[in-house]
């Protein structure tokens, strides 16, 4: 009887484990995330409230630290620990302001997840499209999902119609640093200005 009871308990645990891991697939993650964002955008919340909610989503679902380091490109290795700490904080504030500001104007954004491609144990690409409306054509959006921790997938890049936002950001930041003789402080100054405006 005890064996039977253990067996049933094991089956139940196994079921929950399977169910839990299924719910963490990259496609499911993007699906639930985009539904959540879509609900916020189409809600009757004020713009400021929407921005707060979108920032919360951004913090939970994007690997902000990873993206921050990626966007430094070849200058990543030139930062000392104190600069790295300062940059990560600046980038976090910059990213959340920029991300929520870009999204808040879209009140009818609906995303359909199409498929996913596991690149390696660290990355899965989720293919999706932003459903077109009479004012806006359909837009192809691919998500680079960082899956090193399968229980906590995080977004590292959005590729819109083949154009990578992270790469664009990296080239923008690198241009600012290069135009200031490799001085990283120039980037910090620009990020500060953006955050304060």
């Amino acid at each position: 009887m005890k064996i039977l009871k253990n067996f049933v308990v094991s089956i139940v645990i196994l079921f929950f484990l399977i169910n839990n891991s299924w719910s963490k697939t990259a496609s499911e993650f993007i699906n639930s995330l985009s539904s959540e964002a879509s609900n916020i955008l189409s809600s009757k919340l004020s713009e400021d409230e929407k921005i707060i909610r979108l920032k919360e989503i951004g913090e939970q679902s994007v690997d902000i630290e990873g993206v921050a380091l990626y966007t430094l490109g070849k200058y990543r290795k030139t930062l000392n620990d104190s600069q790295k700490k300062q940059y990560k904080e600046l980038f976090r504030n910059y990213f959340l302001k920029s991300f929520s500001g870009r999204l808040v104007g879209y009140t009818d954004a609906k995303i359909a997840v199409l498929s996913e491609e596991i690149k390696n144990e660290k990355y899965t690409i989720v293919y999706s499209k932003l459903i077109g409306t009479s004012e806006r054509p359909e837009v192809k959006i691919d998500w680079r999902v960082y899956t090193k921790d399968p229980e906590n997938p995080l977004i590292r890049d959005l590729v819109i119609e083949g154009l990578s936002l992270a790469r664009t950001q990296k080239e923008e930041f690198n241009s600012i640093i290069a135009n200031n003789d490799g001085n990283i402080e120039a980037l910090f100054e620009n990020l500060n200005k953006f955050i304060e405006n």
């Binding site: 490109g73 690409i125 890049d157």
Partner: peptide, 10 residues
């Protein structure tokens, strides 16, 4: 997506 093939991520 070509942009996905960016070795810098690794």
């Amino acid at each position: 997506t070509e942009a996905m093939e960016d070795g810098d991520w690794d």
